[in-house]
Write a protein that binds this DNA or RNA. Structure first.
Lengths: 198, 198
DNA sequence: CCGATGACAGATTTCAATATCTGTCATTCA
DNA sequence: TGAATGACAGATATTGAAATCTGTCATCGG
């Protein structure tokens, strides 16, 4: 039956993503989303209180994808220094490929990011947590120099901040520069030299 | 004589800055600049080939100010690790205060930066040079671990990239966060731990 | 003679009328 | 009964005509 599957939040989110991809953040409307789903826009409002809430939910979905794909690197086995390198490299690659090389989609993503700083803050917290876990493991293994208590999170945050240029969408335009890989490797090397046991 | 001082490139640049401050980057026109100077806009075009060239020159002036104010920190005496800390702190402070806490002026600055990436690239090269000089001094002093030849510039670039979040105007909005000082200190500590001789 | 002028063409921006969208809700329909 | 609808008011976006701006250049005046 080509007819009515039930209208779920999930289906609305998929449709919203499609509309955002196709028309961009400025022109994507709730009416468009409803049209894609073949329902009236009133029905969309039954599932999402406002257009802003709908866009926030899409943003959350997108960011959750990154967390999920990184978890294996955070939890993997092997020396902590190698895991950290792998994790940072994977994060860079994921952010870079998020749009599959499409700069318009990247721009769309950036707009949503800018609209939903609370969601982004939670996302960053998760990422810093993953780094902190790797650091703690490294200290236990004796690969990284000891850090005390709360300081692990501060240091994890510093690692995250120091690699900002390689994961913050604000810098996406630089990610096709020819020497970006070299710059990334140099920062990672700098960080690892700092963390490793003397 | 309140009358005609000669019209110089310098006077035009000053007037352009004033117009940019007053009207912002979107509404600042060459006609406005000419009006401030009490001349016809044709006269402005005798000194700057296009509006873009005029704005580029203003951008260059603004950035040169930073370089000049940092030079003492780069050339100062004292242990290289302290000089590096001082230099990074000064850079952060300068960028933060560039607009004197005025977010509109900061936004204006960001627009000009975005329009003139070639100028910015040269600016960044100068800054990285200053870092490289401090690093080389540190190695000579025995404060920093030895690095070989070309690698000094790569490392200097890594230090610059790692502190990006604290000097790139793209992040200006974050610079009033309550824990920004802590984050900055943590990144600087991370970097210095990496550079210092074992 | 040489810098300054202002009229001009084409490009860009502004503004106000018009159309579309957001969010609500009384009503429909299964 | 509870999900879906579509008409509606106020907010936002689009559009095209009018105004302004950019960049040029023949002309002016000291």
């Amino acid at each position: 039956m080509a007819a009515t599957e039930t209208l779920t939040a999930e289906r609305i989110l998929e449709a919203t993503e499609e509309v955002l991809r196709r028309y961009g953040p400025a022109k994507a409307t709730v009416v468009d989303v409803a049209r894609v789903l073949g329902v009236s826009h009133g029905s969309v409002y039954r599932h999402f209180r406002t257009k802003a809430a709908l866009r926030e939910a899409v943003t959350e979905r997108w960011l959750e994808g990154t967390i999920t794909e990184l978890r294996p690197h955070a939890e993997g086995t092997g020396p902590a220094d190698e895991r950290l390198t792998g994790w940072l490299t994977a994060l860079f690659a994921l952010k870079r490929n998020k749009a599959g090389g499409d700069p318009e989609l990247m721009a769309t993503f950036q707009v949503l990011i800018g609209e939903n700083s609370a969601v982004v803050d939670r996302h960053v917290e998760h990422l810093v947590d993953q780094i902190a876990r790797i650091l703690a493991d490294g200290v236990r293994e004796g690969v990284f120099a000891a850090v005390e208590g709360e300081e692990v999170v501060t240091t994890a945050r510093a690692v995250f901040d120091a690699t900002d240029r390689f994961h913050d969408p604000a810098h996406a335009a630089d990610w096709s520069a020819p020497d970006i890989e070299t710059a990334f490797a140099a920062v990672v090397a700098l960080i690892l030299r700092s963390l490793r046991r003397a």
